[in-house]
């Protein structure tokens, strides 16, 4: 998939339309990053775990979408099933990008090469002014960037509190054992062993529901297994 993000401009993008991102075909992402705020919603449909970013070694929260690399059991050729769709997908084909003019200024960009971009869907401009649709999408992006920053600081807090443990998750798919490695979870016993003030701090910041949603979502690994079994059968 080629990606070609260019700054949004009325003069260039006045004719194009953008389709619902739920129709985005992301067949080959086994994991997609999540911001903390969307974890409870995502956890209702899919396992939410933590992995290390290969480039930086930093932890990130992700939705686990498949049991093998490049497998997304929640999306088919026509787009996403009726499940929670991570915000990183819902932002497509837009992205906030750093201007490479030395100022490092953030501007709204669009991926011109995205299959979502064409002559179907919502228009971005009308007579040279932004449509309500575009303004809504821009607000979505803006809040996503803020939430991403909050997410990083909360994950750093988890690291500093030493809450993560490495876990290898195993499931059976039609009698075949599949082992998922490189996955990290929040350890309940470490959480319970936190000093009172630290625990209270998590509670006050509203992080506890996120943690419990993550822990609860591990049950969804079995859902992945049955989705995969169903797919293999089809």
């Amino acid at each position: 998939m080629t990606i070609n993000i260019v700054p949004l401009q009325a003069t260039i993008h006045d004719k194009i339309k953008v389709k619902d991102p739920r129709s985005a075909v992301i067949l080959d992402s086994q994991i997609l990053p999540l911001v903390i705020q969307e974890i409870p919603a995502a956890a209702a449909d899919m396992p939410v775990v933590f992995v290390k970013n290969g480039e930086t070694g930093q932890f990130q929260a992700v939705a686990l979408l498949g049991l093998e690399s490049k497998e997304n059991l929640f999306a088919g050729p026509d787009g996403w099933a009726d499940v929670y769709v991570p915000r990183i997908v819902m932002n497509m084909p837009f992205k906030l990008v750093n201007l490479e003019d030395g100022t490092g200024r953030l501007v709204y960009g669009i991926d011109d090469a995205s299959p979502l971009v064409g002559d179907e869907g919502d228009a971005l401009y009308e007579n040279g002014t932004e449509t309500d649709y575009l303004q809504m999408r821009k607000q979505g992006l803006q809040s996503y960037v803020e939430q991403d920053m909050i997410t990083n600081s909360i994950i750093k807090l988890f690291v500093d509190l030493d809450l993560f443990v490495q876990k290898s998750l195993g499931v059976d798919v039609k009698g075949q054992r599949i082992q998922l490695d490189g996955i990290y979870l929040i350890d309940e016993s470490k959480l319970n062993a936190l000093a009172d003030d630290k625990f209270l701090d998590l509670r006050k910041r509203g992080i506890l529901p996120v943690i419990y949603a993550h822990l609860f979502s591990l049950q969804q690994v079995r859902r992945l297994a049955s989705l995969k079994a169903g797919r293999n059968a089809a």
């Binding site: 290390k52 480039e55 070694g57 930093q58 030493d162 993560f164 990290y184």
Partner: peptide, 11 residues
């Protein structure tokens, strides 16, 4: 350079 920038995890 990356270790200096991002640090390594203990686990």
């Amino acid at each position: 350079a990356r270790i200096k920038r991002y640090g390594l995890q203990t686990i």
